[in-house]
């Protein structure tokens, strides 16, 4: 299990990296934290001729307060995000989801940009991106694009990124006043990819949900928004019956795959359970904060 022959280019600036990506085209792959890509290389299941290592581009690792949002550089380590106070206070859903990614030594290297660009349907970040309506900033020698999360994840491990584009910045809207959130997931063991996970954030006004964001991972070819469930909560509130109905709707709305770890039916069922648990946690936390 050794990587195939390859070259590693280590640009120290974004401009340099974009030029290299443009120059080498399909032969090159960007290397972010490497926690998903390097295993594939070691199994020789991925065979780029060139890796463009983004780890020396210090400009891509930052967490900035942007007023109504937090701007996070794509090469910011998951561990940095989890430990960041601004994120904890203003984007608690992102923070909570981060703590559930794999294990600490993996989060030491893994980056938010790498995870989003990898678009593993069982990963936590894509679900958070959808729930929070995160915006993804991409760069290429051709210029900058801003892509909404809803338009970013296209299929299993497939995103709207063009081959010459890099994800550079993640715009995370701050949690609105009166909001409460939760990220819950279930995996075979702690740290494994989720069999099902639900990201939830509800903004309450006058003790009723005014905005409901629910997204799921692990239950389809991409993470997805649970729009029917959201509508139910928005209309009927967060009482036991509404939560039950929303969870049933969530389970009904997903189209999971069967694999070694869980059948499609089981995953669907878990989506319902995770939806319930996420909503219950949100409500419980809202009660504590209000």
């Amino acid at each position: 299990m050794k990587p195939p022959p390859l070259d590693i280019l280590s640009p120290s600036s974004l401009i340099e990296a974009l030029a290299l990506l443009s120059e080498h085209g399909d032969a090159a792959r960007p290397l972010a934290g490497g926690q998903s890509l390097v295993p594939l290389l070691n199994f020789r299941l991925s065979r780029p001729e060139i890796l463009i290592d983004l780890n020396r581009i210090s400009d891509l690792a930052f967490i900035k307060d942007g007023g109504d949002h937090i701007a996070i550089g794509a090469m910011t380590r998951e561990r940095t995000i989890e430990e960041n106070e601004l994120v904890r206070d203003q984007a608690p859903l992102l923070q909570e989801a981060t703590t559930q990614i794999a294990h600490l030594p993996i989060r030491s290297r893994g980056t938010i940009g790498g995870s989003l660009a990898n678009a593993d349907p069982a990963a936590e970040y894509p679900a958070v991106a959808l729930a929070l309506e995160i915006e993804l900033v991409t760069q290429s020698v051709r210029g900058e694009r801003r892509i909404k999360a809803a338009a970013f994840f296209e299929d299993v491990l497939t995103t709207a990124l063009e081959p010459d584009e890099l994800l550079t910045e993640i715009i995370v809207p701050k949690a609105p006043p009166g909001s409460s959130s939760a990220f819950v997931e279930i995996a075979r063991r702690h740290g494994d990819f989720a069999l099902a996970g639900v990201a939830a954030q509800i903004t309450f006004a006058n003790n009723a949900p005014a905005d409901v964001c629910l997204a799921v991972c692990g239950a389809g070819s991409t993470a997805s928004r649970l729009t029917t469930a959201e509508e139910i909560i928005l209309q009927d509130g967060v009482g036991v019956e509404a939560v039950k109905a929303a969870s049933a709707a969530a389970a009904a709305s997903v189209d999971p795959m069967s694999d070694l770890h869980a059948s499609a039916d089981y995953r669907r069922r878990l989506v319902g359970v995770m939806t319930t648990r996420a909503l219950e946690k949100v409500v419980q936390r809202a009660a504590v904060t209000s």
């Binding site: 590693i8 280590s10 490497g34 926690q35 390097v38 295993p39 070691n42 890796l51 290592d53 780890n55 561990r79 600490l104 030594p105 993996i106 030491s108 290297r109």
Partner: peptide, 19 residues
């Protein structure tokens, strides 16, 4: 293979030497 790289634990099988 976990080692401490620049103050944090990391898998040395998921990093390249050049990094």
């Amino acid at each position: 293979c976990t080692i401490i790289v620049d103050g944090v634990a990391a898998r040395s099988c998921l990093m390249f030497a050049v990094q």
